[in-house]
Each structure stands twice: as structure tokens, then as C-alpha cells.
Design a protein around this nucleic acid. Sequence first.
DNA 1: TATTTAAATTATGTCCTACATATAAAATTA
DNA 2: TAATTTTATATGTAGGACATAATTTAAATA
Lengths: 232, 232
Amino acid sequence: MSTKIKPIKSVSLVEQVEQRILEFLKENRFKSGDSLPGEIELAENLGVSRNIVRESLSRLRMLGVVESKKRKGMFIAEPDILSGIERIMDPDLLGEEAMQHIFELRLVLEVGMSELLFIRKKDSDVDNLQEIVDREANDPLCKTDLQTRLAYEIEFHSYLYKMSGNGTLNRFQSMLLPVFHYMMQQESKSAAEPKRGSISHNDLVETLRSGTAYEFRENMRNHLTPHFSKLS
Amino acid sequence: MSTKIKPIKSVSLVEQVEQRILEFLKENRFKSGDSLPGEIELAENLGVSRNIVRESLSRLRMLGVVESKKRKGMFIAEPDILSGIERIMDPDLLGEEAMQHIFELRLVLEVGMSELLFIRKKDSDVDNLQEIVDREANDPLCKTDLQTRLAYEIEFHSYLYKMSGNGTLNRFQSMLLPVFHYMMQQESKSAAEPKRGSISHNDLVETLRSGTAYEFRENMRNHLTPHFSKLS
DNA sequence: TATTTAAATTATGTCCTACATATAAAATTA
DNA sequence: TAATTTTATATGTAGGACATAATTTAAATA
């Protein structure tokens, strides 16, 4: 018997319409603030029901491509590349592989970020980092409580992203946080004694203050060694 | 006169339902493959119309959180954190600031990626890279045609991501590509003569073959110098 | 006339009902 | 038992109706 006939298209109408609208926006060079045709007009022109158009627009709205006001209609808004990720970045939803990838991504980002930090760091930033480190050093709980230690770890590294001066990068990290947190807790469970790299947070601050981007990069790599050594 | 009364919430029903469903999935520890309640049942339980539920599910479907088969109903699918980004990663849709951020992200990734490369590189990978470089060196068009040069540039760097062994990272880069391409063309226009770092692709391959992750990192940083020097 | 108030307009937001379609499962037939 | 047809069911699509909010226009009032 011959092989199954090819299914022409099993793409839902909603997806098709979504693509067509996106194409329409690109082709016509729609700019932020421009207003779109109304839902009924779109539906008529596309030859589909208003329901389909609405579902498509709903997706585009979620991605931040369009916004809608009650009587004004819909208009273009600069899309937010992260708004989609935001909703699903959750250890309870992601699979093991995805989480592993994301964890690795963190390591890549923090080592690679050095250059941006040295281009954009301000003295006040370094001072604030120092404050975090001091607070960590003087907190007695830090020796006994894993959660406390994790909290400082995250606070410190989060601040680095903020210093990068790249808002997208910063937001990215803040939504990757739950995954980091989860993975680090897993690590802590498997290895009873939390391994630490030979480079401390304090060392990193010092490098940031009076070192070079090159030194900071290597120190950060060193600081993250325990995580890297888990990879295969 | 007193200040305006606070608006309780102007979040659309669709968004609320989307959140509630996501919460529902998390709370009940839904796992990949589990089947969801039907649309009508969800609508009844949530006290909203089926339309609203459908719009919400449509968004979740786009994010890869759920999939739907005709008679089977809907079931959980491991969410794809990148599927949202994919659709809107387009220079024609993004703003200047977002593109700048994404371009910086590329620099960060490629410098930070070194460690992964050395953990996962195979000899065949290095050979393939070498082949790309050789092809580039022997292509006469490379001296005259900007597009050709760009194509090789992208082919080379794209392969590095593939070598990282991190599928998420690799896909990420492939969808960031249009932005890279756009930005690099902009750079080429502004600076008539395309600046190049002192480290060539060939040097990078050599480092990859017989050097260390540390050396590769610094060489990559050097290779990207012309891009970094544009930052502020 | 100028200002305030009210009504009509208009697009999105929500709800409802009906039917199409695909397909897993049950019933039927060979 | 195995192949086939039927049936049941959940998603997919359509179209109409009304709600809601915000803008414009018209009316009313000072």
C-alpha cells in the first residue's frame, strides 16, 4: 500500500491569521503608536469570523505587539520579547532538560557579562555590592541556614545583572531566577557540603572596584567552578 | 476635590483566566502528557464563557504549555520558553533599544560560552569549523562583497552555538540572528571600513583545537572588540 | 456665548448557540 | 478474531447579541 497522503495544512486558522497579521504589520512598516484596522474589518478582509481574529489578536496582545483601548481600537506597541517567557518560566512547568539549559545559560551570561559591567559600572554600584557582601559576612544565619545563604547568593548575582545596564538582560535574569533557585537547591541536596569556588563574593567586588574586565571574567569563572564541574 | 477612585482591576478576563489555569496546573503538579479538563468544564468552573477559556488556552497553546487534539482534548506539553520570542524577533517590529540590548546579549553569550564549548566540543566540530574558515579564506567575493562577508561571519558564529550542546542556547541564537544581521549591517554602513579584531576566525579555531577555555574566552573577547568599542 | 450635561457613536469585551471536523472508542460485520 | 462501520465527544469555526468604556457630538443650562 502507498504511504499516507500528505496533510495539506494542519495549522489552525488562528495561527494562520496571527501570521498574516504579523506579516501585514511588517510589510506596511507599522510603527509604534499606529492604529490597526478594527476586528470586524480584519475579519471581513481575511474571510474568517471575528472570533478567530480576536484569538489571534489576543496572542499578539500577550506578546506585547499590540495594545487595545476600549473605543480607540488597537494600536501597535513595541513588542516585549520577554513577556511570553515570563509566564512559563517556572520549575513546576519546565522539564529537566529545559531547566538544565537555562541553568547553563546563567553561567554563560555571568561570565560573559564582565565587559558590560566594566563599561557601565558606577561607584555607587560597587558600594551597594559591597554592602550586600558585608551584610552577608555579618549574618550569623549564613553559616547554618541554606535558605539564607541562597538568598544572599541570589541578591549578589542579581545586582550584577542590574549593573549591566541592559534592561533586557536584567529582566531576563529576574525571570530565570526561579529556575536558578530550584537548581541550586537541588545541588545543595545532592552535595551535603556546599562547594564554593576559591573566589568569594568579596573578591569579585574587589576586582570590580580596582581590577579589569579581563580579571573579573576569570574570577567569575572561578567563582562558578562548582557549578561548571557538574556539567557534562 | 478628592483624588480619583482607584480602579479595582482593569485586567481582562482572558488574562485572569490564563493565570488561573496556569496556577491550576502548577498547584496540581500537572506533568507532561496529563490531560486537562475540557473547555466547557473549565468555562463552567471558572464562571466565564467558553470563548474566554478558548482565548486563554490559545495563548497557552502558543507558549507550548498545552497541546490539543481533536477528540482527545487538551493535554500538557512541556512549555517551550522560546516559542513566544520566535514570532516577534524581527527588526521591523522591535524598537531601537530592544535591538541594542539583544545585540549586547550576543556579545555576552559568545564570550561566556567558551566553557561550554570546551566541555562539549568534538573533533568533528572543530573540523567543520575549519572547513568554514577555509571556505571563507578562499572565497574571492569575501574581499569585495559585504553580504558574503556577513554570511560567513554568521555561519561561523552560528556553528559555535551549535557546538555548545545547549539546544535552548542554540535556538535562541538562531532567532536572534535577524537582529544580529541587521545591527551588523548598520555598523558596516556607519564605518565604511569594517573594523576587525586582531583575532581572526582562524585563530579562534586554532585555540579551540589546541588551546584552553580560558584562552578561547579572551580571544573571542578580542575578536569582538570592534563591537564592544561601540558601546557606551 | 460659554460651560456644563446629556446622548449618540464606536470599538473592544463578553456571552451564547449552532454547527463542522476529526478521531478515539464502541458496535458491527466478515 | 480481525477488519469495518458507526457513534460519541472535544476541539475548531461561525455569527449574532449585548455590555462596557471612552470619545464625539448635541443639547441644555447658566
